[in-house]
Write a protein that binds this DNA or RNA. Sequence first.
DNA 1: ATAAATGCAAACGCTTTGCAGTAAC
DNA 2: GTTACTGCAAAGCGTTTGCATTTAT
Lengths: 147, 147
Amino acid sequence: MQTDEIIRLMSEAGLRITDQRKTLAKLFADSPGYLSPKDVYDHMGRYYTGLSFDTVYRNLRVMDELGVLEQVMFEEGVKFKAHCREAHHHHHLICLHCGKTYPLTLCPMDMTEIPEEFKVVKHKFEVFGYCKDCTGEAEAAAAGSDG
Amino acid sequence: MQTDEIIRLMSEAGLRITDQRKTLAKLFADSPGYLSPKDVYDHMGRYYTGLSFDTVYRNLRVMDELGVLEQVMFEEGVKFKAHCREAHHHHHLICLHCGKTYPLTLCPMDMTEIPEEFKVVKHKFEVFGYCKDCTGEAEAAAAGSDG
DNA sequence: ATAAATGCAAACGCTTTGCAGTAAC
DNA sequence: GTTACTGCAAAGCGTTTGCATTTAT
């Protein structure tokens, strides 16, 4: 989603467009991957000296509830990114180093047989690894872990 | 995994087999689904009066590191279950009410095209919903949310 | 006997909340 | 001018850690 669209949606929802929210909208519009609350706080902190974590959290929550952001649980905790506006339901490749995501058109639900008695509510399909730009980091991580 | 096997693996790893760990092994061997640390604490608390959360956490961590438990991040937080010993890699249907899991033989990775440049490390495929015994809860949840 | 496991209490990190001042509408 | 947003401080929750005691080996 574009900065303008995020802001428009927030404004239409009756939210006030503060400087912080403009910066937040731009941050997520420009960011190709998932951001943790701390990532967001660090980025925002460059522009707002008195910035506090609770405001970051409040805005992330508001934007998540409004649907302009989507929230995903990683092992390291919650992360956010701008909601995908593509009409087509899809999943993602997610880079463990830079957080960048790449769409996967295939949805496994189309070919998964679910027993009739089981009432499906939602599903999760995510592929984690290292993208082109970060394959160097893959070896570093392998060397570092479990040494 | 069976209680005996969990205990055997822990013993072979040089861990001491305390009463609590026996109970823990049996709990996970008998439990068909994921358990939160609190679930575990509540269950254990019935048998051990002075039980403390930190011991529960310590044992969950030890057992996870040993590989007799597997740990999954849910939106509500971390949960554990006995590691699946089946040779075949598989995924799960997970009941949102009782936490029970059912194996899915299909793995979407077999039919997902990944760009050559992307180095896959791991993947996640989980289907959430309500199982046969809990479909009644599905309506209750729907009525309760977003009202 | 020795070293690991436990319980307690306290600390920790992440997230939320109450309140008074500030800013968008 | 009204009401929402913000920063501050403090509380909340889930989880981890240090230390003395207990227990499996």
